[in-house]
């Protein structure tokens, strides 16, 4: 049997990265580091441009639906690049027989989320395929925003240096566990809701206030573990993280213990990692905590010039270990 694409290639971990680097980036002439948004220089300003596809199963889950995910996801990819998101496109691949009522509910959610985020959905596309040729509904969104002057380096992390602090805006793992719970085949029901939300307003609170933010990235597939490993590789610096300081809600913790998941590698849809100078970190923490999406924000570790290229987790029990890049398919179709 020849080599084929497997679900592992879509997991957000090392196999997906290899696929993107070896097949797409090379042939398309894209240069590393590959970031969530492309930054496009124009006369006097920089535009951010990003796209994302959504195949979440089930379409509706506690705390959101595929439409909310599609809107917030692209807004967030732009926002963490230091951009003010402005225009969004939305394309739909719909399976024959899909209830119009559900489609309307999903479109309503997208419309209201767009108003909340202050973006406009300005163009799109619709395709319908025969029954059985796609699973209910897939959505692709793309977005354009204007990068805030002085934030152009954020997505590439070129200013990250030893001593910088790592900050996240709240508890990890809620989205993945909410979607998993909604699948009905795990035999558990929980009150855990997806954290799905647009992060552009909380991020815009930094504009004009902070000048020493060195990196931002949303913590979607592969979770915190994937992003930290990417940063370690990208910068060739070490990362040191204190497990104890990472917020994880009790019900999420419990389910992870039971199901054997690591909350640090679970997908989130309203969480991001921020890296800033040590001096500015407390100011940033205050700004985050003053916003509803950052109430549980925490400093979780720092950049170091030790163990270069590796993320080392100081465990809550006092041990130390490497926090690895997630690999394989823990959870397909989580977003």
């Amino acid at each position: 049997m020849s080599d084929v694409v497997s679900l592992n290639h879509g997991s957000g971990g090392s196999q997906m990265r290899n696929l993107i680097e070896n097949i797409f980036a090379g042939k398309f002439g894209m240069s590393k580091p590959l970031t969530d948004s492309a930054l496009l220089e124009n006369e006097g300003y920089t535009m951010a441009f990003s796209t994302d596809s959504y195949v979440v199963d089930p379409l509706f889950f506690p705390g959101g639906n595929i439409g909310k995910l599609a809107l917030c996801g692209t807004v967030n990819d732009l926002a963490v690049s230091g951009a003010i998101p402005l225009w969004i496109s939305a394309s739909f691949i719909i399976e024959e027989g899909f209830p119009l009522e559900d489609l309307e509910r999903i479109a309503d959610t997208m419309a209201s989320e767009a108003i909340k985020a202050g973006v406009k959905i300005v163009t799109g596309d619709t395709k319908v395929v025969s029954k059985g040729k796609c699973d209910k509904l897939f959505i692709t969104t793309a977005g354009v925003g204007i990068v805030k002057s002085g934030f152009e380096h954020i997505s590439k992390g070129s200013m990250i240096k030893p001593g910088d602090k790592l900050i996240i805006n709240g508890s990890l793992g809620n989205h993945a566990i909410a979607v998993l719970g909604a699948r009905n085949n795990l035999g558990f029901s929980s009150k855990i809701e997806s954290d799905c939300a647009s992060l552009n307003h909380i991020i815009q609170n930094f504009f004009g206030e902070c000048s020493e933010i060195h990196f931002m990235r949303d913590l979607t597939r592969g979770g915190l573990a994937a992003v930290l490993n990417e940063v370690a590789e990208m910068t060739s610096l070490g990362i040191s993280v204190q497990e104890e300081s990472i917020p994880v809600d009790e019900p999420v913790k419990g389910l992870c213990e039971m199901l054997g998941f690591n909350p640090l590698s679970l997908a989130n849809e309203g969480k991001f990692l921020l890296i800033s100078s040590g001096d500015e970190s407390f100011k940033i923490l205050d700004i985050l905590r003053s916003h509803p999406l950052g109430k549980n924000a925490a400093i979780i570790g720092e950049i170091t010039d030790e163990h270069e290229g590796y993320v080392v987790l100081k465990t809550a029990t006092g041990g130390k270990r490497i926090l690895e890049m997630p690999s394989g398919i823990d959870l397909p179709r989580i977003c």
Binding site: M1, V4, V5, S6, L7, N8, N185, L186, G187, L259, G328, I329
Partner: peptide, 29 residues
């Protein structure tokens, strides 16, 4: 068991070829 290699195939590869393979958490499923 999904990714364990046999002499030629794994269940993972068979799934890519269209085999109906479902992950369960209990044999009762």
């Amino acid at each position: 068991l999904i990714r364990v290699p046999g002499s030629e195939l794994s269940l993972d590869k068979c799934r890519s070829e269209g085999a109906d393979i479902r992950i369960i958490f209990s044999p009762l499923e």
